[in-house]
Design a protein around this nucleic acid. Structure first.
Lengths: 144, 144
DNA sequence: TACTCACATGATTTAGAAAACATGATTTAT
DNA sequence: ATAAATCATGTTTTCTAAATCATGTGAGTA
């Protein structure tokens, strides 16, 4: 559904939210281990997220990434838009460049409703929400 | 959502359903033009569909592809399973290899419901259904 | 039979995402 | 001020889906 980059980005945001606070930062190594993502690739993604102000970073010794209260208010949709753009809002099951009310593919109207709930899901779930969930220890960001 | 191959496969099935009957077959060239897909690539996909008995083919002069009554009863899900396998049934928003009730990613339960309606959609829509739709001229398989 | 048409099969190439690498810049600590 | 830690940036490599190419096979027709 999302690009690999985007999957990693979401996982990283959730992971950092869990592990960081005002003066505890999380480094790339820890993030990539905690989310089961390739280190160098994840580094690049973190820099994207940082450039787009979805997360804070500090250089140097004891540096790393962290999230403040306003970062925690971001939704999954904000991350997806930052990394994958708005394909999720415009994509077509059959791959039509333009698939709309006026120019619908054969499944346009059926998919429309599903897409609506999909968008609702990613827009209504904030990082803070996941933070609480993960605290229960009943959810996972990686398999092994 | 689906692979490019799968998108083309669905379009091709719908297209052939429209254009063919017992003694009118549709050739690769016509199919690829009618669905805006690369000819050689589409040829390969048609052969997959043919091998998996989702469509009939005839070699030689006046040969081509066609669908009989039972072919028309196939659902979109049948095509998806033939081309992409059952990833749609097991995929995870965050890319976990195993994402289940026992080992859920943070969005597993929210996505579960959406996935259910997605599957329902592709299982309940048969090629024959589209055939009728397309007759109205209000749906499209390509843009230009 | 021989020729042609059109699908079938397998090998090859291309393009773009995913991943890795090399180097630069900034901060902290001594 | 120097060195080490850590994020930032740009380039290169790898991998796989997507697309193409070359050749084979069966069916129809004269």
């Amino acid at each position: 559904m999302f690009s690999k980059s985007c999957e990693y980005a979401i996982k990283a945001m959730i992971f950092v939210a869990q592990k960081s606070n005002a003066d505890t930062r999380v480094g790339i190594k820890e993030i990539s281990k905690g989310t089961d993502a390739p280190e160098h690739f994840m580094a690049k993604i973190m820099q994207d997220l940082s450039r787009r102000k979805l997360i804070h970073s500090v250089k140097g010794p004891n540096g790393g990434f962290y999230m403040d209260a306003s970062d925690l208010k971001n939704s999954i949709a904000d991350i997806v838009k930052a990394i994958d753009g708005d394909v999720i809002y415009s994509d077509c099951v059959l791959g039509l460049k333009v698939c709309s009310e006026k120019n619908p593919c054969p499944v346009h109207f059926e998919y429309k409703e599903i897409k609506k709930s999909l968008i609702k899901m990613i827009e209504n779930n904030t990082i803070a929400d996941f933070n609480e969930k993960l605290d229960t220890g009943m959810y996972f960001l990686k398999n092994k």
